[in-house]
Deep mutational scan, measured.
Amino acid sequence: DELEKRVKKIARKLNLSLDQVEEWLKRNNNDELVEAVKRLKKK
């Protein structure tokens, strides 16, 4: 979905793993995208 695409884009842009992106999003209080990261990690 759109949020998952955004997460992947962030990960690529910042050259981070999904775990690192998740931490980064949590620090930025971006719950919506944190949920998207969790969905991606399950895939």
Rank of each mutant, 00 (worst) to 15 (best):
D1H: 12
D1S: 12
D1Q: 09
D1K: 12
D1P: 06
E2N: 09
E2V: 12
E2G: 07
E2L: 11
E2R: 11
E2H: 10
E2D: 11
E2S: 11
L3A: 13
L3I: 06
L3R: 06
L3N: 09
L3G: 07
L3Y: 10
L3K: 07
E4C: 03
E4S: 05
E4Y: 07
E4T: 05
E4Q: 03
E4N: 05
E4G: 03
E4D: 04
K5L: 14
K5R: 14
K5M: 14
K5V: 12
K5W: 14
K5G: 08
R6S: 08
R6D: 04
R6C: 09
R6K: 12
R6V: 15
R6E: 14
R6I: 15
V7G: 01
V7H: 01
V7W: 04
V7N: 01
V7Y: 03
V7R: 02
V7S: 01
K8G: 06
K8H: 11
K8S: 11
K9F: 15
K9D: 15
K9L: 14
K9S: 13
I10K: 01
I10T: 01
I10F: 03
I10Y: 04
A11Y: 03
A11P: 02
A11G: 02
A11T: 03
A11I: 13
A11V: 07
R12M: 12
R12Q: 14
R12I: 12
R12T: 12
R12E: 14
R12S: 14
R12G: 08
R12C: 15
K13H: 10
K13R: 13
K13Y: 13
K13L: 13
K13T: 10
K13F: 13
K13I: 14
L14S: 02
L14N: 05
L14F: 14
L14V: 01
N15H: 13
N15T: 03
N15G: 15
N15V: 04
N15W: 07
N15I: 04
N15C: 14
L16S: 00
L16I: 08
L16Q: 03
L16Y: 09
L16K: 05
L16H: 01
S17C: 06
S17I: 05
S17P: 05
S17Q: 05
S17V: 03
L18M: 05
L18D: 01
L18R: 02
L18T: 02
L18A: 02
D19G: 06
D19P: 04
Q20F: 04
Q20K: 07
Q20L: 08
Q20W: 05
Q20G: 09
Q20C: 09
Q20V: 05
V21Q: 00
V21P: 00
V21Y: 03
V21E: 00
V21H: 00
V21K: 00
E22K: 04
E22T: 04
E22I: 12
E22M: 11
E22W: 09
E22D: 04
E23Q: 10
E23Y: 08
E23R: 07
E23D: 11
E23I: 10
E23L: 09
W24F: 11
W24R: 02
W24Q: 00
W24E: 01
W24L: 11
W24I: 10
W24V: 04
W24N: 00
L25W: 02
L25R: 00
L25M: 05
L25E: 00
K26C: 11
K26V: 11
K26A: 11
K26D: 03
K26L: 11
K26W: 05
K26Q: 10
K26R: 14
K26M: 10
R27V: 11
R27W: 08
R27L: 13
R27I: 10
R27G: 11
R27E: 10
R27H: 11
R27P: 01
R27S: 12
N28Y: 13
N28A: 12
N28S: 10
N28L: 12
N28H: 14
N28P: 01
N28I: 12
N28F: 12
N28V: 12
N28G: 13
N29V: 07
N29F: 10
N29L: 06
N29S: 11
N29I: 05
N30M: 15
N30T: 04
N30E: 15
N30Y: 15
D31C: 15
D31N: 13
D31F: 15
D31K: 12
E32V: 09
E32P: 04
E32M: 09
E32F: 08
E32K: 09
E32G: 05
E32A: 13
L33A: 02
L33F: 03
L33T: 02
L33R: 01
L33G: 02
L33H: 01
L33Y: 03
L33P: 01
L33D: 01
L33K: 01
V34G: 03
V34W: 10
V34R: 07
V34L: 15
V34Y: 10
V34T: 07
V34D: 04
E35A: 11
E35Y: 01
E35H: 06
E35L: 08
E35T: 05
E35Q: 08
E35M: 09
E35R: 06
A36Q: 02
A36G: 01
A36N: 01
V37A: 09
V37R: 01
V37F: 04
V37L: 10
V37D: 02
V37T: 06
V37S: 02
K38D: 05
K38W: 03
K38N: 08
K38G: 05
K38L: 07
R39E: 08
R39W: 04
R39A: 13
R39S: 07
R39Y: 03
R39G: 06
L40H: 03
L40R: 03
L40K: 02
L40C: 04
L40P: 01
L40G: 01
L40Q: 02
L40V: 07
L40A: 03
L40D: 02
L40F: 04
K41E: 05
K41P: 02
K41Y: 05
K41L: 12
K41T: 03
K42P: 03
K42N: 12
K42I: 09
K42A: 14
K42D: 09
K42M: 10
K43S: 06
K43W: 12
K43Q: 08
K43E: 07
K43T: 06
K43M: 08
K43N: 07
K43V: 06
K43G: 06
